[in-house]
Amino acid sequence: MMHGPCGTLNPNNVCMDSDGKCKNNFPKPFRDCTSHGKGSYPKYRRRNDGNIVLVRKHNLDNRWVVPYNPYLLAKFDCHLNVEVCSTIKAVKYMYKYIYKGHDRIAIRCTDNNDNADIDEIERFQSSRWVAAPEAMWRIYGFPLNEIYPPLITLQLHLEGKQLVKFNKNDVLQNLVDNGLSSRSMLTEYFNMNQNDNLARTILYREFPEYFVWNQQVRRWTRRQKRQVIARVVAANPMEGERYYLRLLLNHIKGCTSFQNSKLSMVFMHHHIKKHILHMLLDVDNSLDLCLEEASAYQMPFTLRRLFATILLHRDPENPRHLWEKFRSELCLDFERLQLSVIETNLRALQRY
């Protein structure tokens, strides 16, 4: 898995751009350790150990090595580039190729006179390439894409704060007087719990699995077929009551109104957060799950930063419990220095 050679060793290589530089920035500089680049792939360690191999009549060292995985090279017996995608741009990278649009091809129309000057700008054609499999698929009318099962987003709002859609020519007073416009998925969920026995036995996030939202009349009706997945829209802990309403709806069944007996504990009491956490303490382990998942692949430095973010923005009920449960993962790099428990804790906490 060696690149090139290119640059001064081979100026005509396919990776060379118009400025005479390699598009992939080879050869890479020697590095003693791997580090993260800003908005890019990691900058991998490249030892200056003097090892040289002969590739295409040129001697190349570790600066020309392409990132690889030895197991995958042996398994598939082919050239296989493997990169570490560790930032949010990895998601953008995947979406770029999934949703980049139709396949395109650059074409050039010329006559038999090979010596004639060609104006590429004037003759440029922006065309779409349709291969035989795609043409056959479209001729027979087969579906091109589908999301299954479909995802339903459930609305979340406080009392009297639902979104209302209207046209610019509508009379606002008529809109206010019309009860249809004030209906939302959440308010009609409360109404269904008052009149339907099945509705009172399921959570809000499970509601679309048994009922269908009719946008025309803005009501829930019994579902007859098709499987769906539902998610309640996200809420930031800094939003206060809206966040704890979401937490409540994800764990409590049969809520019939905002002033319902279970909800009134939340919205009528001054210490809203304390009461809701006491109700859901046994079932709300989202912070434990968050740190448990992150500890499986994050380095200790990044894991400590996540722990500090949780302390700052989530205000956990029992921070000491989280620290003691994940202390070994949070202090893994310091424990390798064979420090005492006190010194390890102090070094880890001093960073944040």
Rank of each mutant, 00 (worst) to 15 (best):
M1E: 08
C6T: 13
C6K: 02
G7C: 06
T8A: 14
V14R: 07
C15K: 01
C15F: 04
N24G: 04
D32P: 02
D32R: 09
D32E: 13
S35F: 05
H36S: 05
Y41N: 03
Y41D: 00
R45Y: 06
R47V: 07
N48I: 00
N62Q: 09
R63Q: 15
W64D: 01
W64G: 01
Y68S: 03
N69H: 11
D77P: 01
V84S: 04
C85D: 03
C85Y: 13
V91C: 07
Y93D: 02
Y95T: 14
Y99A: 13
H102F: 09
R104S: 13
A106Y: 10
I107Q: 15
N112K: 10
N113Q: 14
D114K: 07
A116V: 14
I118N: 03
R123F: 11
F124L: 08
F124E: 07
S126D: 15
S126E: 14
R128T: 12
A132M: 04
E134M: 12
I139N: 08
F142W: 08
P143H: 07
L144F: 05
N145A: 14
E146S: 11
P149W: 11
P150I: 03
L151M: 13
K161G: 02
V164A: 09
V164N: 02
F166Y: 15
N169A: 03
D170H: 07
V171K: 15
L175C: 09
S182H: 12
M185H: 03
E188H: 01
F190Y: 06
Q194A: 07
Q194D: 06
D196H: 05
T201Y: 00
E209H: 09
W213F: 02
W213Y: 05
N214W: 00
Q216H: 09
R218H: 08
R218K: 15
R218L: 05
R222V: 15
R223A: 12
K225E: 10
K225C: 11
V228D: 02
A230G: 13
E239L: 01
E239Q: 12
E241P: 00
L247C: 03
L247K: 11
C255P: 01
C255S: 04
S257K: 03
S261M: 12
S261D: 14
V266M: 15
I272G: 06
K274H: 12
L277E: 15
H278M: 07
H278P: 01
L280M: 06
L280I: 13
D282G: 11
V283K: 10
V283T: 14
L287P: 00
C290R: 06
S295E: 04
Q298W: 01
P300F: 03
F301T: 09
R304H: 10
H313A: 12
R320N: 14
R327S: 11
S328N: 14
C331P: 02
C331M: 12
F334A: 04
L339A: 00
S340G: 15
I342H: 08
T344N: 08
N345P: 01
N345L: 01
N345E: 14
